[in-house]
């Protein structure tokens, strides 16, 4: 073989194998980022960073094409089944271990493609803690070939072969097998940096024309009693991020009695989402106000 032939071989192999790999990934479309995916169902696989990658990449195409609303939160609301909401089709973009910085990435992309979404902002101290999964810098390109994609194929294979259960539904609900941590202490102090991130995200959604809803998720009774004042201060400050016409659903009110721990049981999560449904129904029937900027 001559040097020239060797060089051509290397270049051709890269182009042919690389091209074939890209085409295969485009065809499998595991993240639903390519083509018209209206009416199709895609479910995340795996927890932690993998869930984040799935939900982030879903925000490019799958969520804007199939949903009218988005709920952002942490593991606290990750197991809430938003398919139970009757009047609006909401995707649960909550992330196990997620913070506002992670939610921001999803909201930013969704609003780019569907600015008039209903965005439910879960208000919980864990959301304003300063950490994140980082940024999937390559964005949509990661769906064409990346380590994250390999991880997704690996999980898909495990699921298809019956080695692992499918824990997510196509609405993004992560169906925990059971309550994993009973009374998990959460730092209620607000980190100023993340508070600002939260504020800017609410403002960004509002100015993009989205309908903004706040949702104060239930705090386990013993935790709430232990830190009553701190929680009250926290919620008072967070409530001020929302305009008077933007509804805030407070599931810590006296009319609710959730007896679960930090993460809710299946029954608790069902009760919580049904309570949200009732409130949204009421507002919808009155005509949920659009953003004044829309």
């Amino acid at each position: 073989m001559t040097y020239r032939a060797f060089n051509l071989h290397v270049i051709l192999i890269v182009l042919v194998l690389g091209g074939a790999f890209l085409c295969f990934n485009y065809w499998v479309n595991i993240y639903g980022v390519f083509g018209d995916v209206s009416g199709k169902s895609y479910s995340p696989l795996g927890g932690g960073t993998t869930e984040y990658v799935f939900k982030y990449l879903f925000s490019y195409n799958y969520i804007p094409r199939n949903f009218d609303g988005l709920m952002i939160g942490s593991s606290i609301t990750d197991n809430w089944d938003t398919s139970r909401l009757n009047n609006v089709k909401v995707y649960n973009a909550s992330l196990n271990g997620g913070r506002i910085a992670d939610a921001k990435q999803i909201v930013d992309v969704v609003l780019k493609y569907r600015p008039n979404m209903l965005i439910i902002f879960v208000i919980h101290p864990i959301m304003t803690q300063p950490s994140s999964f980082g940024v999937l810098e390559k964005g949509i390109w990661a769906a064409l070939g990346s380590l994250e994609l390999f991880r997704a194929y690996y999980l898909k294979l495990q699921f298809e072969l019956g080695f692992a259960p499918q824990e997510f539904n196509s609405f993004g609900q992560y169906d925990f097998p059971e309550i994993r941590k009973k009374w998990n202490e959460t730092n209620v102090d607000i980190s100023e940096g993340t508070f600002d991130e939260y504020r800017l995200l609410v403002e960004h959604a509002r100015y993009s024309g989205a309908r903004v809803v706040g949702l104060i998720s239930p705090i386990a009774g013993p935790l709430f009693k232990k830190n009553r004042e701190a929680y009250r201060r926290y919620y008072a400050r967070m409530r001020r991020l929302f305009k008077p016409w933007e509804p805030i659903i407070d599931l810590n009110g006296p009319e609710y009695d959730f007896t679960d721990g930090t993460h809710m049981s299946r029954i608790g999560a069902r009760q919580a989402i049904d309570a949200v449904d009732l409130q949204l129904d009421a507002w919808m029937s009155e005509g949920l106000p659009m953003s004044c900027h829309s």
């Binding site: 290397v10 890269v14 194998l17 690389g18 790999f21 980082g134 940024v135 999937l136 810098e137 390559k138 390109w141 990661a142 064409l144 070939g145 990346s146 380590l147 994250e148 390999f150």
Partner: peptide, 11 residues
């Protein structure tokens, strides 16, 4: 080269 491109396109 291909494996490197794959890693480059990851987080």
């Amino acid at each position: 080269l291909l494996v490197s491109f794959l890693f480059m396109n990851s987080t």
